[in-house]
């Protein structure tokens, strides 16, 4: 019995020695992982990558509109090739002062460039202020700033409205009874909204066709649903809804589906999203006027880099749009 017991003693020593080593290694690994988690998450010791050349802020509304996703995506893609870091500030669409706050913040921080999506008002003043602080200012949007000589990258809402009107005339001709759903960003009365103006211009080619109801909707699909529902209720003769943003388009389509009026009420929407593409494919949405927001982002960065390299940015850049219909969406 002596020999097996002696061997069992060694076996226990080896076994518990391995257990001790294993537990210690495991403990070290786990502590290392907690440290790593803290290092990367708290201390900022995570390798940030290469130092880039320029620091540009993008100030956009905090909106679910896919237009802004496209704008950001286009900007980031272009920034990747130009050694530019993009910092995004989002303001509440219903609180325009927030955009101003972020703009001032960027000036205080003497950022290399600011790309701002906002209405045409105060664009000139902001341009001057930025110029004074040696900050490149690139306004983007759908409404061209009123002052000549101020650079601007955008897709004109007027042209968007014209194309939407053309799509209505092509499908309904003179019988078109248009309900128009605008965004709440515009401060002007609806008849002065460029989208409204564009639709009116297009409808002139089909006498009899006209806009019967106009409404503004806050950002968001539910707001779009609410506005569309109110519009259809106010005038049951409406047989086409023209929507000025992607969320409004999705909300209006939902209302038409819910009311069982697919085919009776056409929808001409704006921009693109997976939902809009699906609804176009099903025939709920007749067409969508897609502003090329990615190109808008790319052009904005191009304008910034040009300005930094001594090329003055003083002219508007129209990025255009395309029409998304069932034929294009269908696989």
């Amino acid at each position: 019995m002596r020999f097996p017991l002696a061997r069992a003693g060694w076996l226990f020593i080896v076994l518990f020695g391995l257990a001790l080593t294993g537990a210690t290694v495991m403990n070290l690994v786990l502590i290392g992982q907690t440290r790593k988690a803290l290092d990367e998450g708290i201390l900022g010791n995570k390798p940030p990558g290469a130092v880039l050349k320029y620091h540009v802020a993008l100030i956009i509304p905090d909106s679910p509109d896919s237009f802004f996703d496209g704008l950001r995506e286009g900007l980031l893609k272009a920034a990747g090739t130009e050694a530019v870091a993009i910092q995004v500030f989002k303001y509440h669409a219903n609180v325009p002062d927030e955009a101003e706050t972020y703009f001032q913040l960027c000036l205080t921080s003497r950022i290399d460039g600011v790309i701002l999506y906002a209405g045409p008002d105060q664009m000139a003043r902001r341009g001057d202020q930025a110029s004074k602080e040696d900050v490149v200012f690139v306004p983007v949007g759908t409404l061209t700033p009123p002052r000549a000589g101020l650079g601007f990258v955008g897709s004109s809402s007027l042209l968007q409205g014209v194309e939407a009107g053309n799509q209505v005339v092509r499908r309904l001709g003179r019988s078109a009874r248009v309900g128009l759903l605008l965004t709440s960003e515009g401060e002007e009365v609806p008849v002065e909204d460029p989208v409204y103006e564009g639709v009116v211009i297009a409808l002139r080619s089909a006498p009899g066709a006209h806009i019967v109801q106009v409404s503004r909707a806050r950002p968001g699909i539910l707001s779009g649903e609410e506005a569309a529902s109110a519009l259809l209720k106010a005038d049951p003769s409406i047989n086409v809804l023209v929507c000025a943003s992607a969320p409004i388009t999705e909300g209006a389509a939902q209302v038409v589906v819910d009311q069982g009026r697919v085919g009776q009420v056409l929808i001409v929407g704006t921009d693109e999203s997976p939902t809009i593409d699906r609804l176009v494919d099903k025939g709920v949405i007749a067409a969508s006027i897609v502003r090329d927001s990615k190109k808008m982002g790319a052009e904005a960065l191009k304008a910034f880099v040009g300005a930094r390299n001594g090329v003055p940015f003083r002219r508007p850049v129209e990025v255009g749009f395309n029409v998304r219909t069932r034929q294009e969406v269908a696989p």
């Binding site: 940030p48 990558g49 130092v51 870091a85 910092q87 913040l105 960027c106 921080s109 003497r110």
Partner: peptide, 17 residues
């Protein structure tokens, strides 16, 4: 410095501000 990182960019903003 300028890095493609939101927090580091905010720190840079704050430093310069």
């Amino acid at each position: 410095d300028v890095y493609a990182d939101e927090i580091l960019l905010l720190q840079r903003d704050l430093s310069r501000a």
